[in-house]
Simulated scan of single mutants.
Amino acid sequence: MAKVLYTAAMSLDGYIAGAGGDMSWMAGHAGPNPVAGELIATTGALLVGARTFGGDDPHRGTEAEGKAFGGGWDGPQFVLTHNPPAEPIPGVTFFGDLDTALAAAKAAAGEKHVLVLGAETARGCLEAGALDEVVVSVVPVLLGDGVRLFEHPGGTNVKLERISLTYTPQITNMWFRVLG
């Protein structure tokens, strides 16, 4: 059965997107990352939040624009939104509720991972008890504002167990199991 993983690149001060959802900050920090390669190879489907799907693209203006992992991964995407586009998008299915979208993503992934992209979608998976692991690639930059990796109004205490810690000259990768 598919594991559900929340994965994100994050600034040192805890942001996965800059102010207004800006992702252009990542373009100057991309580089070889074995953990990203592992995720690409083991992913069977993406579960994507509407803000992430329609947000700023770190590959804007390049051949990789609009492609998952800059074109490094291809497969089914399941997007949570209450406003699907009028025209269908090949390889993308839109859902209005998390449970149905998650079930479809898991079925499509088979034995591979479902990668969750988007902070609100990840929080929903966590609150539903459906999030198995969290993979964060910390990028050496400070953004000062934007979308946090995880935000829970009023606070919470989600226990995690570190599975691995790896690094490259540009990125520190932290992989955790969600304990509850």
Results as ranks from 00 to 15, higher is better:
Lys3Cys: 05
Val4His: 03
Val4Phe: 14
Tyr6Asn: 02
Thr7Asp: 11
Ala8Pro: 02
Ala9Thr: 12
Leu12Phe: 12
Asp13Leu: 03
Ala17Arg: 00
Ala17Gly: 02
Ala19His: 14
Asp22Glu: 09
Asp22Trp: 01
Ala27Gln: 13
Ala30Tyr: 13
Gly31Ser: 08
Leu39Ala: 14
Thr42Ser: 15
Gly44Asp: 05
Leu47Asp: 04
Gly49Tyr: 00
Gly49Glu: 02
Ala50Tyr: 06
Asp56Tyr: 11
Pro58Gln: 13
Pro58Lys: 06
His59Val: 09
Gly61Lys: 10
Lys67Asn: 02
Gly75Phe: 03
Val79Met: 01
Val79Tyr: 00
His82Gly: 14
Glu87Arg: 05
Pro88Arg: 02
Ile89Val: 10
Phe95Arg: 00
Phe95Lys: 00
Gly96Phe: 05
Leu98Asp: 06
Thr100Leu: 03
Ala101Asn: 03
Ala105Leu: 02
Lys106Asp: 12
Ala108Ser: 06
Gly110Tyr: 03
Gly110Cys: 03
His113Tyr: 11
Leu117His: 08
Thr121Asn: 06
Thr121Arg: 03
Arg123Phe: 04
Arg123Pro: 08
Gly129Phe: 07
Gly129Met: 04
Ala130Arg: 10
Asp132Ala: 07
Val136Met: 09
Val139Gln: 09
Pro140Glu: 05
Pro140Asp: 03
Gly144Glu: 00
Gly144Thr: 00
Phe150Ser: 01
Pro153His: 12
Pro153Glu: 07
Gly155Ser: 05
Thr156Asn: 15
Thr156Ser: 15
Val158Ser: 09
Leu165Gly: 10
Pro169His: 04
Met174Asp: 07
